[in-house]
Structure formats: structure tokens, C-alpha cells
Nucleic acid binder design. Structure first.
Length: 804
RNA sequence: GCCGGGGUGGCGGAAUUGGUAGACGCGAGAGACUUAAAAUCUUUUGGGGUUAAAAACCCCUUGCGGGUUCGAGUCCCGCCCCCGGCACCA
């Protein structure tokens, strides 16, 4: 048997596709558009492992399918190339990140090309190109001009290892998302984006998105909207009031103490001596200790509730005018709500723990269960509200508070503003100038891009300033407004900035190679191509890239740059590919499989087929080298079938199977069930192979069905049977409903629901005929001999069930 | 603790949404080819029973225990386990 030798034919067809621009997105096309996007990669030094291309293979297969179905498909690729690895490599070796990135991109591109992806490479983008990041800077400036970017010096997350500030989204369980170092709190001057202004829209518009439910849920949780009230407690012997946020106004009568976070402003006043208390030293000591704790330690649920009473002041419960003690405790978080809470130990588990530990009063105000009881019930000990249900009381107490101006309805979010500046080198410079006369002045559009300056020293300073601060020629500039002396902002943008709008750049590239200003140039193309119809990538970006990009898109919508509310209509997450035996692939375990090896040995088509055949697209799956071999055998068998093609008229049986296969493959592709689509192609091939001669018409349709999965081999076979290339430009086969139906069907005969026999019947046979034939069967007679048939259940072309 | 997703042969996984459980692939067994091996081809392959053997036949089987139904992997109730995410969010 002739060996399947992919290396020659794959190169041949890749060259053909490139030369003939087979996959170029059409500019002025009457076809309906389809925008099919991959999450673009960070071009790391290690290159691809077999897990990466899984999503790419799926979108590529899908893009081929859509093109054959008559769509004008935009399927682009680019590089998200700013980020820490290249910079850290530069620190170690002195090689400029620009050079590393260039090398890595070359390698990645070569790898992707060897898989034969149908990207329109003319639209390739790179976030570190000046013509690209001038736009990233431009969008930042628009945010600044609308007051959505502001300077702040609140304590923020600081990674001591990366020596930079981080966004909340980049802190995972108290650890740095990049390097897993313990994140600290540090006061540094930061640029912050007001993503909270979009909280409600980011939440509401999730409804209309066709995204995996877990991702939507993660975004909902991250935004963390809760409705309740802000209640004011006056503090005795001081001019201050303490505000608390609560969702349970109905438990106000049970608030027996107040707790402040160590970061609370009143605690600061005490430390500064503005408010006199009896135990300042004790409080000071407690705060110092709390500060030392990492976020991880502070939020450890198993930890005991610690705290110190602030002696000498009392708060007044606005519900019953009772004076209650005020405590400072680190279980109350400074950054959530008002940084202070009313403590209701009878109806909150954490407050209960605190009260138990420190001997504070527990007062029951809701009936319904064992203390601490957090459910709904009848209100008691609550003055005139006693007797109401907690749901009703919640509203009534709130109304009363509003009337007396002691509180107001409020919505609180867990989502915080986005800490947007980094004290690192390899990112987009922030295009602002600090001027003594004019304050903070934005650069003008014509002065963009603000180039990232050259330097020999990439080392982060650790002082809260970026390495750019040491480059005098960069820092010292003229104020764009008064032309006096100015100093440039030296922070850079985070990793996520470039990926917030890259899907727009692919559209823009179709209009102008160099991404010129102004934005209005691209109006028509944005209208035509947005939103992205299908977006595929890993689930790890749920609250990072996917949230940030939605935020920027909504902003661009507000300022009239784009015309859809959401950027990505449908999202799919590929499941992880594990090593053999379900172990995670990693360098240290030595079980990483490179697609290069598979391609070299078995070819790109085998790699593509196997990536799609291994299991459900969104499921976690394990790689198996034996399984790869199965795909190779499949293609070899297809090659054998091809040799038997002839002019013979197809039989009804093979026609029926073909049309059933067309139906199945089409439907499976539409619902991203690649594994079962491939399996039905195998079934058809197995049947064709049994024939003496394979009718050419049948086989040519089979090639078309195979083409999106194994494009190189399909092209080769298409040429061999005399087809004009490219098979990928052929229309997708249509199935004939009538032909897809079997002429003869297998009807299951059941006795009391148990299958006892099967009958071959002509399709459409009615109950009478089926019953007659069924009762002739020996097996049926055996089971119905003694008993009477009570009931017959009949399903046309499927089953007959005798109940005896 | 809360929220999502799961649990089907030796393995990866199918099952038209209530209708022959185990498609397709891998692996394994037997045979053919070969000096031999690999590759390839043919064939068997959920477990058990019955049988000298085979055909045929029967029973059991989708994490566990109940239920609804003529009929349950699929629906309902109660458990157990695994994976992912969130977690002192007031």
C-alpha cells in the first residue's frame, strides 16, 4: 500500500493558497459577512504546544465551512506582544524585547503556517508596532478626556517580584497572576480607569450574549452588584458620622456594635489625634499588625475574628437611638462598601463569630431558626416593625431611614476601578504631560504615537516609578498647551491594553495598511463587520480581557466610533488538552507535545483531525499518541477509496448514506460537534471502501465534507479526481431530505418495554402491518403465548411495544 | 460554604433529548501475509449464564438508593464522588 506522505502535499497546497490568495477576505462583497476570531496569542519563547492550536483548528475548520456555505469570512491573526516575559528576558540578557518579540513571532508564524490555517495574513497586527499602539494611546486619551481615566494614590495591589502595581483582576487568591508572588498593599500614584461607571451596562448586556453560562456567571460575580442601603451612624463626642452599607435594613434593630476596617477614615483621624480615645496605643498596634498581613492571610476564612474596641466613643443606632460600641477589626474590608459595617450577630455568621469571641451582645430580631439565622422570617424586637416579614420590613425600615435622612437606597459593586498603570518598561507609554502651569495635559492626536524610548536598562526601579523615569530625554518635554517645561508621565499601560481593541484593528487593516487617524475613516467597515460573530479562546480570560474589552467597546460606542453595544456576540471556550493519562502538560514533567513533531511525523491534517476528534470541544481531554495514529489510518483509507472511483451510477443505499452524512456533518459543524462529524465521515468512508467501484459523484461530495477538517489532503484528492482547485472554493453540499431517508427501516419490537426483536420494514409502514409482522415472529410469540395483549404503543419507523 | 460542569466498556468518547445503551476511534485477542518483526488486511471484543463447541437463547449493566412511565443513561426525589470558578462582598 502506498504510504500517506503529507509533507510534500501540504507544502504544495500551502504555497498554492498563499499564491492564489484563496483565503483573502473580500473587500466589496455581496456575500453575508462572518467574523470568526481567535484570541490572539502572546508570542512566547517556547512556541506552541498541542493545546494552543485546538481553538485555532476549530475556528479554521468553521471558517472553511462558512466560506463554502457562501459567507465572506474575516479570519485574522495577530500578536499580543507587550508583556513581562520578553521584558524579563531583556533584564537577564540585555537583548531588547523588540528583538525577542520579533524572533518569537517569526517562530509562531512559521508554526501556524505549517498547520495550514486560512488566516488572511495581510491583516496581521502586532500590539507593539507604533502604528498599532498609537491607537491604544488614542483610546486612552479619549477616556482621559471624558474623565474616565484619573490619577489616584490609594493603596493598591503591588507585586514585590514583578515590582509593579496590579489590577484586582490580576490578583488570584492573593497571589500575582503572573509570578505567584504574594501581593502586598502599597500606596503608589496610579492611573485608574473608571470601569465602575459601566458596571450596570456590563452586567445587563450579558443577557443578550451567546456566551458559556459559567463565563457570564463569573462576570456577574466579579461585578458583584448588590442592592441595599447606606445608613449613617453618628458617633458620640465627635463631629463625624460613620456610613455603612447593608443589604439587610430589616436587621437594623439587631445591630449591637459597629465595626470599622483598619483603613477606615475615622481610624486615621484617631491615629492623627483628631479624635481622642482611651486606647490609642492598643489600636495603633492592632492596625500595624493588620497591615503586615497579606490579603491572603486577612481573607482566610479559617482565621479567628480579631479586633479591638475603640474605647471612648460610641455610635448611635438610628433605629432605636441606643449607644453601641465601635470596634476596629480586619475582617471588615477597607475596599468594599463603606469600609465599615453595622454588626448584627444574631443574623450574620461573621458578626456572630465576632460577638462570641469578644463577648458582645447578640440580639435576635428575626424569627425562623437557630442563631445565627440568616434567612427570612418574622421581625421581632424591632419597635413598630415587629410582626412584619423581613422582606416587607426591609423596605419599610429603608423608607423610614430616608424620611429621617439617616440613610438612603444604594447599590454597591464588588467591581473596583481598573488600576491601569504599570511601573515597567515593555508597554505602551501613557501619552500625558505633567505641567506645573497647566496640570496634566494630553498629547494631541498628531503627536501620536508617543514612542517607547530606547534604553539599556529595563530593570524595574521598585520605587513606584517605571524605568522610563530614568531616561531624561524622554521625561523632559514641552507642555503641549503652554509650551513651557513639562515632564512626561512615565508609567506604561498594562498587558491588557492592546487586546482591548485588536478585533477592530483587523477590520481597519482591510481599509488602510497603516491604521491612519481619524477613526471616522473606518465607520463603514465597523458597521459592516461588527460584532465579532464567533470568538474562541481559553476560559482563563473571563474577568480579565473579556471584561476589559467589553468596557472599552462600550466606551467607543458612546463616543461614536463603533455601533454595536457588544464586541463579541458568541463565545466558545476550548477545553484544556492534558498529557497522556490526564496529567497537565508541563516542561518539568517532560510530557509536552509540540505540534511540530506531529506535523513532521504525520502531517498537519492528522494533527487537525485529531485535535477535533479527541472529545467535545469544550471538554477537558487527554492527548494520546495512539489516537493520533488512528487519524492517519483514516486518511490512508480515504486514499484507498479514492483509487476506486469510477463512473458507475450510485446505488440508492450509498446515496442515502451520503445524504445522511451531509446532514450530520452540516448540523454537527453548526453546533461545534467536530468529533461526531468526523466519525460520520469515517462511517461513510468505511462503506465506500467496501464497494467494488466508488461513484465519483459520491466521492467528490465526500471530499467537500472532509475539506474543512483536512484541507491539504482534500485539495490533493480533489485534483486527483480531476477537480479544479480549490476544493475549498466549492459550494458546501446540500442534502436532499428525501434521499436522506432510509427506504427500509429497522423497527424495534418490545414486550413490556424490553427489546425482544427487530423487524425490517419498508419506511412508513403503518401500525397494522407492523403488528401483523411482529406477531409472526417466533420471539414475539414466545413472550406473548400465555398472556393477552393489553395495549400497543406504536412509533412510526421506530418501534412497536406490546404491553401484556 | 456558594455558583457552574460532570460521573457510560480496558481507554477517548457516542446515543436523534423518553424508544435496540456502548456509534466512531484507540487498545487487546485470533487468523492471513512475512524467515521474522513492523505495517497492512480479515475477524472477535461490556460482564455473566447456558453449551462438548458454536449458533440460538436468557440474565445483569450508564456513581448509589428510591420514584414516575408500556419503556429511564435521559425526567423527579434523596445521597456519594470528581473537576472548574468564587469566597469574611456586609
Amino acid at each position: 500500500m502506498e504510504r500517506y506522505s503529507p509533507s510534500k502535499i501540504e507544502k504544495k497546497w500551502q504555497d498554492y493558497w498563499e499564491k492564489e490568495k484563496v483565503f483573502k477576505t473580500e473587500k466589496d462583497s455581496k456575500k453575508p459577512k462572518f467574523y470568526c476570531l481567535d484570541m490572539f496569542p502572546y508570542p512566547s519563547g517556547e512556541g506552541l504546544h498541542v493545546g494552543h492550536p485546538r481553538g485555532y483548528v476549530a475556528t479554521d475548520t468553521f471558517s472553511h465551512f462558512k466560506r463554502m456555505k457562501g459567507y465572506n469570512v474575516l479570519h485574522p491573526m495577530g500578536w499580543d506582544a507587550f508583556g513581562l516575559p520578553a521584558e524579563n528576558y531583556a533584564i537577564k540578557t540585555g537583548i531588547h524585547p523588540k528583538n525577542t518579540v520579533e524572533e518569537n513571532i517569526k517562530h509562531f508564524k512559521k508554526q501556524l503556517k505549517s498547520i495550514g490555517f486560512s488566516y488572511d495574513w495581510e491583516r496581521e497586527i502586532n500590539t507593539t508596532d507604533k502604528e498599532y499602539y498609537k491607537w491604544t494611546q488614542w483610546i486612552f486619551l479619549q477616556l482621559f478626556k471624558k474623565g474616565l481615566a484619573y490619577e489616584d494614590t490609594r493603596p493598591i495591589n503591588w507585586c514585590p517580584s514583578c515590582k509593579t502595581g496590579l489590577a484586582n483582576e490580576e490578583v488570584v487568591n492573593g497571589l500575582c497572576d503572573r509570578c505567584s508572588a504574594k501581593v502586598e498593599k502599597k500606596d503608589i500614584r496610579q492611573w485608574v480607569l473608571k470601569i465602575t461607571a459601566y458596571a450596570d451596562r456590563l452586567l445587563e448586556d450579558l443577557e443578550e450574549l451567546n456566551w458559556p453560562e459559567p463565563i457570564k456567571e463569573m462576570q456577574r460575580n466579579w461585578i458583584g452588584r448588590s442592592e441595599g442601603a447606606v445608613i449613617r451612624f453618628s458617633v458620640s463626642r465627635t463631629p463625624f458620622t460613620v456610613e455603612v452599607f447593608t443589604t439587610r435594613t430589616d436587621t437594623l434593630f439587631g445591630a449591637t456594635f459597629l465595626v470599622l476596617a483598619p483603613e477606615h477614615f475615622l481610624v486615621k483621624k484617631i491615629m492623627e489625634g483628631e479624635v481622642e480615645v482611651e486606647n490609642k496605643k492598643e489600636i495603633e498596634k492592632y492596625i500595624k499588625e493588620a497591615r503586615k498581613k497579606s490579603e491572603l492571610e486577612r481573607t482566610d476564612l479559617a482565621k479567628e475574628k480579631t479586633g479591638v474596641e475603640i474605647k471612648g466613643i460610641k455610635a448611635v443606632n438610628p433605629a432605636n437611638k441606643e449607644e453601641i460600641p465601635v470596634w476596629v477589626a480586619d475582617y471588615v474590608l477597607g475596599f468594599y462598601g463603606k469600609g465599615s459595617i453595622m454588626s448584627v450577630p444574631a443574623h450574620d455568621e461573621r458578626d456572630y463569630e465576632m460577638a462570641e469571641k469578644h463577648g458582645l451582645e447578640v440580639r435576635k430580631v428575626i424569627e425562623g431558626g437557630e442563631i445565627p439565622f440568616t434567612g427570612e422570617g418574622k421581625m421581632v424586637n424591632s419597635g413598630k416593625f415587629s410582626g412584619m416579614s423581613s422582606e416587607e420590613g426591609r423596605e419599610k425600615v429603608l423608607e423610614e431611614l430616608e424620611k429621617e435622612k439617616k440613610g438612603k437606597r444604594a447599590v454597591n459593586y464588588k467591581l473596583g476601578d481598573w488600576v491601569f498603570s504599570r511601573q515597567r518598561y515593555w508597554g505602551e507609554p501613557i501619552p500625558l504631560v505633567h505641567c506645573k502651569e497647566c496640570g496634566i495635559v494630553p498629547l494631541e492626536e498628531k503627536d501620536l504615537p508617543l514612542d517607547l524610548p530606547e534604553t539599556e536598562r529595563y530593570e524595574p526601579t521598585g520605587t513606584g516609578e517605571s524605568p522610563l523615569a530614568g531616561i531624561e530625554s524622554f521625561v523632559n518635554t514641552e507642555c503641549p498647551k503652554c509650551k513651557g517645561k513639562g515632564k512626561r508621565e512615565t508609567n506604561t499601560m498594562p498587558q491588557w491594553a492592546g487586546s482591548c481593541w485588536y478585533y477592530l484593528a483587523f477590520i481597519m487593516k482591510g481599509d488602510s495598511k497603516s491604521l491612519n487617524f481619524p477613526a471616522s475613516l473606518y465607520k463603514e467597515s465597523f458597521k459592516k463587520w461588527l460584532p465579532v460573530d464567533l470568538y474562541v479562546g481559553g476560559a482563563e480570560h473571563a474577568v480579565l480581557h473579556l471584561l476589559y474589552a467589553r468596557f472599552w467597546h462600550k466606551f467607543l460606542y458612546d463616543i461614536g466610533v463603533v455601533f454595536t453595544k457588544e464586541p463579541f456576540l458568541e463565545l466558545k471556550n476550548q477545553g484544556l488538552i492534558m498529557g497522556e493519562g490526564g496529567i497537565k502538560m508541563s516542561k518539568s514533567k517532560g510530557n509536552v507535545i509540540s505540534p511540530d513533531e506531529v506535523i513532521k511525523r504525520d502531517g498537519a491534517d492528522v494533527l487537525r483531525l485529531y485535535e477535533m476528534f479527541l472529545g467535545g470541544f469544550e471538554d477537558r481531554v487527554s492527548w494520546s499518541e495512539d489516537g493520533v495514529n488512528g487519524m492517519k489510518r483514516f486518511l490512508e483509507k480515504v486514499g484507498e477509496t479514492a483509487k476506486k472511483t469510477g463512473k458507475q451510477e450510485p446505488s440508492r443505499e450509498i446515496k442515502t448514506l451520503l445524504h445522511k452524512t451531509i446532514k450530520k456533518v452540516t448540523e454537527d459543524l453548526e453546533s461545534f460537534k467536530f468529533n461526531t462529524a468526523i466519525s460520520s465521515l469515517m462511517i461513510l468512508n468505511n462503506e465506500m471502501k467496501k464497494l467494488e467501484e466508488v461513484p465519483k459523484g459520491i466521492f467528490s461530495d465526500f471530499i467537500k465534507l472532509l475539506a474543512p477538517f483536512a484541507p491539504h489532503f482534500a485539495e490533493e484528492l480533489w485534483e486527483k479526481i480531476g477537480g479544479e482547485p480549490s476544493v475549498l472554493k466549492q459550494p458546501w453540499p446540500k442534502f436532499d431530505k428525501e434521499l436522506a431517508k432510509e427506504e427500509e427501516v429497522t423497527v424495534v419490537v418490545q414486550i413490556n418495554g424490553k427489546a425482544r426483536d427487530t423487524l425490517k420494514m419498508p419506511a412508513g409502514a403503518d401500525e397494522k402491518d407492523v403488528k401483523k409482522k411482529a406477531l409472526q415472529s417466533k420471539k414475539v410469540k414466545k413472550w406473548t403465548k400465555e398472556e393477552k395483549i393489553k395495549k400497543i404503543i406504536f412509533l412510526k419507523d421506530k418501534l412497536i411495544n406490546f404491553v401484556v
